[in-house]
Simulated scan of single mutants.
Amino acid sequence: MKILVINSGSSSIKYQMFDMNGELVLTSGIVERIGLEVGNISHKTFINGEEKKVVKEFPIPNHKVGLSEVVNLLTDAEIGVIQNPDEVSAVGHRVVHGGEYFNETTLITPEVEAKIEEVIPLAPLHNPANLEGIKVCTEIFSSAKQVAVFDTAFHQTMPAHAYRYAIPEELYKEHHVRSYGMHGTSHKYVSAKTLEYLNLPKEGSKIITVHLGNGCSMSAVKDGKCIDTSMGFSPLAGLMMGTRSGDIDPAVIFFLEEKLNMKTDEIYNLLNKKSGMLGLTGFSDMRDVEDKINAGDAQTRMARDLYTYRIKKYIGSYIAALNGVDAIVFTAGVGENDTAVREEVIEGLDFCGIKLNKEENSLRKPGIREIQAEDSNVKVLIVPTNEELEIARQAQDLIK
């Protein structure tokens, strides 16, 4: 069974194709700069252990043109992995927001598309692009099942006291203002992998997953289900991130508006794209941050302290929410690769019996790794995330 996974953005399309017999990646790529004067496609195939790469530049006015070229590459006589689009059994779509309508992977129908469109106000930057990818793929891969995998679905198991805000009831009932969370596909994948790796039964398990990339979020996972997560109504809440502020006193927004005469869109842009690590240091890439710290820059040192302190605070609150913890799991680009961040997060948690093996933490090895000290009462793991594979698995399970 061949499954194509699509992550459709406003001006880009990321994709991977899997042969689910062995869960092999056959091809992956990205279509970029859609709608601009010149777009590009970077496409890789993996055949018999050999990687081949193709890069093309040409005008890509819309998603249909971009995906049509992807099909040409997938069926190319020399580097193709299928002979025609009908060989694709399913297309798994990453959909950022499903509101309260979807708590599991869903076969896409016109009614489902309508619900995705209905919750666009909850994810105005993402859902329109996700929906566009669905519409184009439905036309191009007409024989395939179209499957929606929602970023918010894993968090729909949160109890009301975790997802509700202390604001007037009608704002929730009439306008669905509540915490939804994001990165659910990643949190689900790594928490399940952790249970499997540690041979822990779901029942009674307590895991904290720490997804650190340019976007950052954490989840408290009990009995294999999410009971709390750091992102909220939007991806802006929670941890400090590459360009997002994370948690902030709402009165700051009123101050910016009233005292500095900033408009709503300016404040939105400031908090989402000009804040976080970028706002404090001028850099959003943690490798640049590390270089500045090593050069003795005090401001950058403070910024990373703020970054790791926020994570540590959430760990403490989630230990309380879970009434203990079996494992703390780091994942995503920063979580998997930044040794200093992991060390600073775990430092000072020994009162909870959480201790790090600094030597093991400093090593770079592939796959799942344990990095806790021998006398640690809690496992500390690095679990590489694979959201595309998780989407493919969920699509396969659904159509089966």
Rank of each mutant, 00 (worst) to 15 (best):
E258F: 00
R94H: 02
P59S: 06
I227H: 06
S11K: 02
A114E: 15
P121L: 10
T138V: 02
I315W: 01
T75E: 13
G276P: 11
L271K: 07
I399F: 07
L212T: 05
V88G: 02
Y318I: 09
R342S: 10
I208T: 03
R287Q: 14
I227D: 07
E336L: 04
E57D: 11
V221C: 03
G99K: 03
N7Y: 09
V190N: 00
I267D: 10
F351R: 09
T385N: 12
E387F: 01
G246D: 00
M231L: 09
S275W: 02
N72R: 02
A320R: 00
L256K: 04
P366L: 12
V71D: 03
T264Y: 05
A77M: 05
N48R: 11
G335N: 12
I207N: 01
N377Q: 09
R310S: 14
T194R: 10
K173G: 06
C226P: 12
L356H: 04
G99Q: 08
L270N: 03
K14A: 10
H183L: 07
D338R: 04
V383Y: 13
I311E: 14
T339M: 14
H176A: 12
Y172K: 04
I354T: 04
G133T: 03
T152V: 03
C137F: 12
V329S: 01
V25E: 14
A160D: 11
P110I: 15
S68M: 06
P85Q: 06
E360A: 08
V177Q: 01
G224Q: 04
N357P: 05
G92L: 01
K206W: 03
E32M: 03
I315R: 02
I167E: 00
I328R: 05
M1A: 07
P366K: 05
D19Y: 07
